[in-house]
Design a protein around this nucleic acid. Structure first.
Lengths: 214, 214
DNA sequence: ACCTGAACACCGTTCAAGT
DNA sequence: ACCTGAACACCGTTCAAGT
């Protein structure tokens, strides 16, 4: 094993650097190879074609997303803080197109684990905890992905139009509106999940049944 | 105005055809030009560069999405049916990457209008109606975008694991799980929005206030 | 076995030249 | 004014040839 040779992890790390420095258009097989001082051939033998490289880069970046979570308060509050932290982490990705290169289905497990631990510690069953994690993750990834394609209008447009609710201005949304829309959406989801947890844990709801209306 | 010449709309229509026939990798400036029997130059003078063409294609495809909505039942039920219809429409797009090329911020206005009309007919104020449309649209576009990158496991995995709730299996989700997750998410959002509408319409909630906790 | 130089078949984009 | 042939500067990918 010659130490001069190039590893698969070296290639992915170099690709992440190229992505951060030159953007997604600058992330080419040739650029990654040139950064490592090799020909493009090792990329094809050790990682695969360009699509495989993009998958690997997405998995690497999503795997690095971490959400800290103090264990104070009821689980619903912890879940809301966790979701806000996940959104912050995803927004700071060098390229948000990796959110859709989600074939690394396990990539966000590192970010999810603290919430899963907190939910179990709060006494929730494992399947319900997994469900809550999955719904909040799915909603947050989707929100940030859509958010990346939105053009903001100037702030406080609802004052001009007279709207009293965030997102109520038909002419557009400001960046503070977007924050409020995300917060509302996450709160609605967590309220619904809370009620679901209460229903499933009460004996009258009938054990062994699937979800009501589900 | 020579009738032999090529129009901007012709270019976009040809691009949509190329996308449907050859996929997103086959959608090239040269292929669109060749389909029209012209050189690539007219594309650059009449539409712009490739990114502008992709924007135009995305806007065209999203503009064609239509959601039918009968006006039976309370607005919350209509909203749920509308959201399910929107998901169906978005899932049938020839390439779901257009969901992220969302710079045509008005592209889904045609699909949104029936819901907006129904909400107004149900007596909701304009700003709350716009807010509801925006939240449901945002959540659905995000869900479908994420959904496009998910690898399903075989159906009914929760039976093997013993999970009783959709999305509760830590090893993966089946396609019926995904349907159930979307339905749950939309129902939670509509329930939250319903409560919000009730609070804002009751005199005791205090007129002129912003949203509670918002 | 693993790497390189060179090539192939494409791209997006633009130029001088035509009409 | 508008289009074309041809070119430029790249791509992703793979080949025969080296070591």
């Amino acid at each position: 094993m010659p130490s001069t040779s190039i590893d698969r992890d070296d290639i992915i790390a170099a690709a992440v650097e190229v992505l951060k420095e030159r953007g997604s258009d600058g992330l080419t097989m040739r650029a990654v190879a040139a950064r490592l001082g090799v020909s493009p051939i090792p990329l094809y033998t050790k990682v695969g074609d360009k699509n495989a490289l993009l998958d690997a880069v997405a998995e690497e970046l999503l795997d690095q997303v971490r959400v800290d979570l103090d264990d104070h308060g009821p689980w619903a509050d912890q879940a809301e803080r966790w979701a806000q932290g996940l959104r912050r982490g995803l927004r700071s990705l060098p390229d948000r197109r990796v959110l859709l290169h989600n074939h690394g289905r396990w990539a966000l497990v590192g970010a999810t684990r603290p919430l899963l631990v907190a939910l179990r510690a709060a006494g929730l069953p494992r399947d319900q905890s997994v469900r809550i994690c999955r719904i909040l993750t799915w909603a947050t990834v989707g929100f940030v992905a859509v958010e990346a394609g939105v053009d903001y209008v100037e702030d406080e447009p609802h004052l001009a139009y007279g709207s009293t609710v965030p997102g109520g201005d038909p002419t557009g949304v400001s960046s503070t509106d977007v924050d409020a829309l995300y917060s509302s959406q996450i709160r609605f989801l967590i309220e619904g999940l809370s009620r679901e947890v209460d229903e499933l844990s009460t004996p009258t709801a009938g054990r062994g049944r699937r979800l009501p209306k589900g």
